[in-house]
Nucleic acid binder design. Structure first.
Ligand code: MN
Ligand code: MN
Ligand code: ZN
Ligand code: ZN
Lengths: 139, 139
DNA sequence: TACTATAATAGAATTATTCCAAGATAGTAA
DNA sequence: TTACTATCTTGGAATAATTCTATTATAGTA
């Protein structure tokens, strides 16, 4: 909370109660929530909060580089309050998304026919797998 | 066409004219079309074709492992008639998607804290970059 | 304390995708 | 061939995610 105020004050980002609630929910959150996850959570404290506010806020944070949009799930977007370069793994059973903190860039050289056409600027790896609790269910 | 008929006949996949047109459009297509791209193309020859048919057909093909769904573009799904394991690169200027045929699996070992939680089954790399024609425009 | 640029809200609009019920037809078997 | 039926196609409605809009509220500042 202190940290949040310090971080955003005087940067043209108004700290409204709804935004503070969203920032608190996101801070340190490694669950990669969807817009609906955020909405549902904030609604507990602010029953009149709207989806527009959630989307506006995540967009503002994305524009400031404070949050990433994750595409690993074909069904919907997930958001990640950790903007540092890292990768993800999704359980194909339950959809749970985990972090993969390892820098693979060194190993990701591209074939010449690709670099001829594209100036590469970044990469992101989607891993797929089965999480522990899903494995228990099936066995 | 011959090849197509041979491939699907007697496999419980009815070869209707619309499906044949979709299969022809997809065969060897490396453009990673969206559902709308497919629909627009098929509509030229079959003006009454419906989106439902396009979606039904790509689903049927996906279920048979003949086609992949690509998630690199946060806006919409793209389809890939090449089901072999490969990766993609998208131009952040125009959205063009290219193929990356290189097997990186050897270099993609996962940290122990991830393998403890997930039994890994696959991976897919999204690369980002700027394509030639987008670079020309900006310069 | 007052002002104003910015944000919150409800609800409509848009877009992508799926569902549905009715009518057609591909493939098979007689 | 012909007839049958499981599967397919279609238009349009339904759903779900996301964005837009007009109005009202308010955070930050002077
Ligand atoms: Mn993450
Ligand atoms: Mn491809
Ligand atoms: Zn799971
Ligand atoms: Zn481009």
């Amino acid at each position: 909370m202190e940290r949040i105020v310090r971080k955003y004050r005087g940067k043209g980002f108004k700290l409204t109660p709804q935004r503070i609630a969203i920032l608190k929910f996101l801070e340190g959150n490694t669950n990669h929530p969807t817009a609906e996850d955020i909405y549902t959570e904030i609604k507990k404290k602010y029953p009149t909060v709207s989806f527009a506010t959630v989307y506006n806020t995540v967009q503002a944070l994305r524009d400031r580089g404070e949050l990433l949009e994750i595409t690993i799930d074909p069904e919907r977007k997930h958001f990640d309050p950790n903007p540092s370069a890292h990768h993800h793994i999704m359980c194909t059973g339950c959809g749970k998304i985990g972090d993969v903190f390892f820098d693979y860039s060194m190993s990701l050289g591209l074939p010449e026919e690709v670099t001829r056409e594209f100036a590469v600027t970044g990469n992101h790896i989607d891993f797929y797998g089965i999480c522990t609790s899903c494995r228990e269910k099936t066995s």
